[in-house]
């Protein structure tokens, strides 16, 4: 089993993802430079968080012209697993691998904080080890996580069970108070219709080790590993 972590210029969670996959989950992992035009054989690609191209113009907007993105698209279309975290999620939106767009947080401020997430679907390779309705605590750290899509798209996501996590209270209630950034329908993670591409604003790689005080992020990596082994 092999993971690839794409290194865009300005990505800053690439090392964190690599560390978790390699040292916590003991899996084979490589960095993939964004100028590469050929992709080696991977089971799962991670688009890490950070500020690719400084978030200039719009988060994720310039990355779509990186040479590697053609390969990432091809990989996704052929059913490969693609996990986009934070800026990686923004990139997936900009490259149309996922529907919708991100706007600036409603507070107009960067927010770094633990949030609670309600798992809406365990029928993805990224969440198959979870419990639908379960509440998970993970940190967010972003300026633009205010998910937006038109009504029809939202309804489509709902109907196809593509909404994977929603921001919720500690008790699992989906409320405005529990929504840190103004995302429509409290959406914090969605997948594509084929369910092999997941974009999520929270950072699971930051909460997989007991020393960091939280291991809820293991759900994502445990599930990926399980589904690849299957």
């Amino acid at each position: 089993m092999k993971f690839g972590v794409i290194v865009f210029p300005g990505a800053n969670c690439d090392h964190d993802c690599y560390h978790v996959i390699k040292h916590v989950f003991k899996q084979d992992v490589e960095f993939v430079w964004h100028k590469e035009e050929r992709l080696a054989k991977y089971d799962c690609l991670v688009l890490p968080g950070g500020f690719s191209y400084g978030d200039y113009l719009r988060p994720g907007a310039i990355v779509k012209f990186s040479p590697i993105m053609k390969e990432v698209k091809r990989f996704a279309k052929s059913g490969g697993l693609v996990l986009g975290i934070c800026n990686g999620f923004q990139v997936l939106l900009e490259t149309d691998l996922l529907p919708g767009a991100m706007m600036t947080n409603s507070s107009l401020k960067f927010i770094c904080s633990d949030v609670y997430l309600k798992l809406e679907s365990d029928e993805t390779p990224f969440t198959n080890q979870g419990r639908v309705g379960g509440v998970y605590k993970m940190p967010i750290a972003h300026f633009d996580g205010n998910y937006f899509a038109d009504e029809a798209t939202l309804q489509g996501l709902e109907d196809n069970r593509q909404i994977i996590f929603r921001y919720c209270s500690e008790d699992g209630d989906i409320t405005d108070d529990a929504n840190p950034n103004g995302a429509l329908w409290n959406i914090s993670a969605i997948c594509n219709i084929e369910r092999n591409v997941l974009g999520m604003m929270p950072h699971p790689e930051r909460c997989c080790e007991s020393i960091l005080g939280n291991e809820d992020g293991r759900l994502i990596f445990d599930s990926i590993i399980k589904s690849i082994l299957r």
């Binding site: 560390h19 401020k109 960067f110 770094c112 750290a141 790689e205 930051r206 080790e209 005080g213």
Partner: peptide, 27 residues
């Protein structure tokens, strides 16, 4: 204030802001 700072990136922060000192682990 510190909510506006990413205080967790690099996954070393084992004591978050809000105590007497902050601590990072040395991987």
């Amino acid at each position: 204030i510190y909510r506006q700072y990413d205080h967790m990136v690099r996954t070393n922060t084992v004591l978050l802001p809000g105590s007497d000192a902050a601590i990072i682990r040395v991987k």
